[in-house]
Design a binder for these strands. Structure first.
Lengths: 163, 163
DNA sequence: AGAGCGTGGTTGAGCGTTCAAGTGACGCAC
DNA sequence: GTGCGTCACTTGAACGCTCAACCACGCTCT
């Protein structure tokens, strides 16, 4: 049992900053979305990911991957959004195990109404603090971290090889 | 009502990466701490912040600031940790409104037992993916974002002016 | 065809977090 | 020194998330 390598000054700064961002940023965005339309950041993201998918639907597991969430969490949230008429669950025609989540027209309209305010908040709470170079660095560093946490995360395939 | 400025490719990459990190990284660290000792990342942080304070105690509001949490959330957690004998609440001698949270000897010992495994996890899940330059960049960028979210966050005073 | 295993998804219980309301204590005005 | 606003914190209820258990289907092997 050797002495652990404690964090040096820069490592500590990076880690503490990330930890703070981690609690403050979602809180700020959640707040904006909640006052704009009783929606959480996660709810928004679920709908946003569906809106970008071919045909505006995805199997639950793929949607879970795209929102970095567990299937369980997603299932609960989809039930909630379904009750509001924004989503619809349908059985997969070929494989009866899979359920697909479809973004309804009402859901799409809600998302479109929310989107401008949301991206504006993303800018004011976050991106506006950074230069173009910072944004580029952050994207690079962020993707390295994501890769470490989940080496075949969908994000990593987005920029790289298209199949 | 002008057309909102949507995110460009780099902005989108940075934002999506941060969003993913935000859910994956705490989950990974929570996991390690939970299996090592039934403690959440937030619990750990509360104790760590106290352990670094003069006399191993802090007023609730300062502890809340140092953990970027609401007073309410902190109060609930302190109650929980108090029941385990790791913390103790005491009234402030001069101002009866303030409560101070003290890290007990048992709490300190628990923290010290958990610390090596935790920093190891911080390294393997996060820092090991980065070069020294990345870490430095991340610290700089992270602090910019923190400043945007809370312009007198304690982190910002740590490196800068003493007093 | 049937057994066994892995996959995809749901559910409910338990716990943690948030939000709004409430409780004292301080401090300033007069 | 009385009133009133603010500050520091606590509490309880509602809501969200996590975890473990579960079900149904498909696939493979025999």
């Amino acid at each position: 049992m050797t002495e652990p390598r404690w964090l040096n000054a820069d490592e500590r700064r990076a880690w503490l900053a990330l930890l703070s961002i981690n609690t403050l940023l979602p809180a700020a965005l959640d707040n904006q979305l909640h006052t704009a339309g009783k929606v959480s950041l996660f709810d928004y993201n679920v709908m946003a990911m569906l809106s970008e998918a071919e045909g505006r639907f995805l199997p639950m597991s793929q949607l879970a991957a795209r929102t970095s969430s567990s299937l369980s969490r997603l299932s609960h949230v989809v039930s909630k959004l379904e009750k509001r008429g924004w989503l619809e669950r349908r059985p997969h025609p070929r494989d009866a195990r899979v359920t697909t989540a479809h973004l309804s027209d009402v859901g799409m309209a809600t998302l479109e109404a929310l989107a401008p305010g949301h991206v504006e908040a993303v800018r004011t709470k976050f991106l506006d603090a950074l230069t173009d170079r910072d944004v580029n660095d952050l994207a690079r560093i962020g993707e390295k971290i994501v890769a470490r946490l989940d080496d075949d995360h969908w994000i990593l395939r987005e920029t790289e090889n298209g199949q």
